[in-house]
Simulated assay, not measured.
Amino acid sequence: MNTASPSAEQAQQDIAEEFAFFGDWSERYQYLIDLGRQLPPFPEECKTEEHRVHGCQSMVWLVPSGDAAKMHFAATSDSAIVSGLIALVLRVYSGRPAAEIVATEPEFVQSIGLAKHLSPTRSNGLAAMLAKLKGYAAQALA
Protein backbone atom coordinates (compact mmCIF):
# COMPACT_ATOMS: atom_id res chain seq x y z
CA MET A 1 0.00 0.00 0.00
CA ASN A 2 1.33 3.41 -0.93
CA THR A 3 1.50 5.54 2.19
CA ALA A 4 3.02 8.57 0.49
CA SER A 5 0.72 11.52 0.83
CA PRO A 6 -1.02 12.54 -2.39
CA SER A 7 0.16 15.54 -4.34
CA ALA A 8 -1.49 18.90 -3.66
CA GLU A 9 -3.47 18.45 -6.86
CA GLN A 10 -4.65 14.99 -5.82
CA ALA A 11 -5.56 16.27 -2.35
CA GLN A 12 -7.76 18.92 -3.96
CA GLN A 13 -9.46 16.29 -6.15
CA ASP A 14 -10.05 14.09 -3.10
CA ILE A 15 -11.63 17.00 -1.24
CA ALA A 16 -13.92 17.74 -4.20
CA GLU A 17 -15.00 14.08 -4.31
CA GLU A 18 -15.68 13.97 -0.56
CA PHE A 19 -17.83 17.08 -0.69
CA ALA A 20 -19.72 15.74 -3.71
CA PHE A 21 -21.12 12.99 -1.44
CA PHE A 22 -23.17 15.52 0.50
CA GLY A 23 -26.45 16.62 -0.97
CA ASP A 24 -26.78 19.98 0.69
CA TRP A 25 -24.79 22.65 2.48
CA SER A 26 -26.05 21.86 5.95
CA GLU A 27 -24.37 18.44 5.57
CA ARG A 28 -21.25 20.02 4.11
CA TYR A 29 -20.98 22.48 7.00
CA GLN A 30 -21.36 19.58 9.43
CA TYR A 31 -18.57 17.73 7.61
CA LEU A 32 -16.38 20.85 7.80
CA ILE A 33 -17.01 21.11 11.53
CA ASP A 34 -16.13 17.41 11.95
CA LEU A 35 -12.89 17.92 10.00
CA GLY A 36 -12.03 20.87 12.23
CA ARG A 37 -12.52 18.75 15.34
CA GLN A 38 -9.87 16.34 14.02
CA LEU A 39 -7.14 18.98 13.85
CA PRO A 40 -4.18 18.04 16.05
CA PRO A 41 -4.03 19.91 19.37
CA PHE A 42 -2.51 23.35 18.92
CA PRO A 43 0.04 24.51 21.53
CA GLU A 44 -1.34 27.39 23.60
CA GLU A 45 2.07 29.11 23.59
CA CYS A 46 1.81 29.48 19.80
CA LYS A 47 -1.34 31.59 20.06
CA THR A 48 0.69 34.78 19.71
CA GLU A 49 0.22 37.96 17.76
CA GLU A 50 3.11 36.93 15.51
CA HIS A 51 1.24 33.79 14.40
CA ARG A 52 -2.18 35.38 14.16
CA VAL A 53 -3.77 35.63 10.74
CA HIS A 54 -5.21 39.11 10.33
CA GLY A 55 -8.21 39.58 8.10
CA CYS A 56 -10.18 36.79 9.75
CA GLN A 57 -13.30 37.62 11.72
CA SER A 58 -12.55 34.73 14.05
CA MET A 59 -9.20 34.18 15.72
CA VAL A 60 -6.83 32.12 13.57
CA TRP A 61 -3.23 31.17 14.27
CA LEU A 62 -0.85 29.65 11.73
CA VAL A 63 2.63 28.35 12.56
CA PRO A 64 5.10 27.24 9.88
CA SER A 65 7.91 24.74 10.39
CA GLY A 66 10.38 22.87 8.23
CA ASP A 67 12.29 24.37 5.33
CA ALA A 68 11.97 24.92 1.57
CA ALA A 69 12.31 21.18 0.91
CA LYS A 70 9.31 20.34 3.09
CA MET A 71 7.15 22.79 4.98
CA HIS A 72 4.61 21.93 7.64
CA PHE A 73 1.90 24.10 9.07
CA ALA A 74 -0.05 23.94 12.29
CA ALA A 75 -3.14 26.08 12.65
CA THR A 76 -6.23 26.52 14.75
CA SER A 77 -9.23 28.77 15.11
CA ASP A 78 -11.82 29.59 17.76
CA SER A 79 -14.51 28.98 15.11
CA ALA A 80 -15.74 25.46 14.31
CA ILE A 81 -16.30 26.12 10.61
CA VAL A 82 -13.02 27.99 10.20
CA SER A 83 -11.24 25.07 11.87
CA GLY A 84 -12.73 22.87 9.16
CA LEU A 85 -11.44 25.23 6.48
CA ILE A 86 -8.01 25.04 8.14
CA ALA A 87 -8.17 21.23 7.97
CA LEU A 88 -8.76 21.45 4.21
CA VAL A 89 -6.01 24.03 3.70
CA LEU A 90 -3.52 21.89 5.64
CA ARG A 91 -4.42 18.82 3.59
CA VAL A 92 -3.60 20.67 0.41
CA TYR A 93 -0.56 22.65 1.56
CA SER A 94 1.14 21.14 4.61
CA GLY A 95 4.02 18.69 4.22
CA ARG A 96 4.98 19.93 0.77
CA PRO A 97 7.97 21.65 -0.81
CA ALA A 98 7.76 25.45 -0.64
CA ALA A 99 7.84 25.70 -4.44
CA GLU A 100 4.77 23.46 -4.73
CA ILE A 101 2.97 25.49 -2.06
CA VAL A 102 3.61 28.74 -3.90
CA ALA A 103 2.56 27.23 -7.24
CA THR A 104 -0.65 25.58 -6.00
CA GLU A 105 -3.84 27.55 -6.43
CA PRO A 106 -6.62 26.70 -3.95
CA GLU A 107 -8.95 25.27 -6.60
CA PHE A 108 -10.91 23.30 -4.00
CA VAL A 109 -12.48 26.56 -2.79
CA GLN A 110 -14.30 26.82 -6.12
CA SER A 111 -14.73 23.13 -6.84
CA ILE A 112 -16.68 22.38 -3.65
CA GLY A 113 -18.69 25.58 -3.87
CA LEU A 114 -17.12 27.19 -0.81
CA ALA A 115 -16.69 30.47 -2.62
CA LYS A 116 -20.47 30.78 -2.94
CA HIS A 117 -21.36 29.49 0.53
CA LEU A 118 -18.96 31.33 2.79
CA SER A 119 -19.84 34.72 4.21
CA PRO A 120 -17.66 37.55 2.85
CA THR A 121 -15.79 37.77 6.16
CA ARG A 122 -15.03 34.03 6.09
CA SER A 123 -13.98 34.23 2.43
CA ASN A 124 -11.65 37.11 3.31
CA GLY A 125 -10.31 35.14 6.24
CA LEU A 126 -9.63 32.10 4.06
CA ALA A 127 -7.86 34.32 1.52
CA ALA A 128 -5.80 35.90 4.32
CA MET A 129 -4.84 32.46 5.67
CA LEU A 130 -3.78 31.24 2.22
CA ALA A 131 -1.81 34.45 1.60
CA LYS A 132 0.03 34.09 4.91
CA LEU A 133 0.77 30.41 4.26
CA LYS A 134 2.09 31.15 0.77
CA GLY A 135 4.06 34.07 2.20
CA TYR A 136 5.84 31.72 4.60
CA ALA A 137 6.63 29.39 1.68
CA ALA A 138 7.95 32.28 -0.43
CA GLN A 139 10.19 33.34 2.48
CA ALA A 140 11.53 29.79 2.75
CA LEU A 141 12.43 29.89 -0.96
CA ALA A 142 14.08 33.29 -0.73
Rank of each mutant, 00 (worst) to 15 (best):
G36S: 01
A103G: 11
N124M: 11
S123Y: 15
K134P: 05
I15W: 09
K116H: 13
M71N: 08
M59R: 10
E100S: 12
A131F: 08
I33D: 01
V60K: 10
P64D: 09
A80C: 00
G95M: 03
F73D: 03
A75N: 02
A138Q: 14
E50Q: 11
L141H: 07
G84H: 10
E107D: 13
I86E: 04
A8Q: 15
S77A: 09
E18F: 06
A80K: 00
A131Y: 09
D78P: 01
L88A: 01
Y136W: 14
Y93C: 03
S65K: 05
Q12K: 15
C56V: 02
D67K: 03
L126I: 08
F21M: 06
W25T: 04
L118V: 08
L130P: 07
L133P: 07
I15A: 04
S79A: 15
T76H: 09
A69E: 15
Q12N: 15
L114W: 11
R122L: 08
V109S: 10
T3W: 15
H51D: 11
A99I: 13
C56R: 02
Q13E: 15
L62Y: 10
S5M: 15
V89H: 06
A142Q: 10
A80G: 00
H54A: 10
Q57S: 00
V109N: 10
G125H: 10
L32D: 01
M71D: 10
H54Y: 15
A75G: 11
F42R: 05
H117F: 07
M59A: 07
E9Y: 13
C56Q: 03
L133Y: 03
G84Q: 09
P120N: 07
V63K: 12
I15T: 06
A4H: 13
F19C: 04
F21A: 07
Q10V: 12
L85P: 05
V60S: 12
A69T: 14
G55I: 09
A138C: 01
A128T: 05
L133A: 05
F21N: 08
Y136D: 14
E45Q: 03
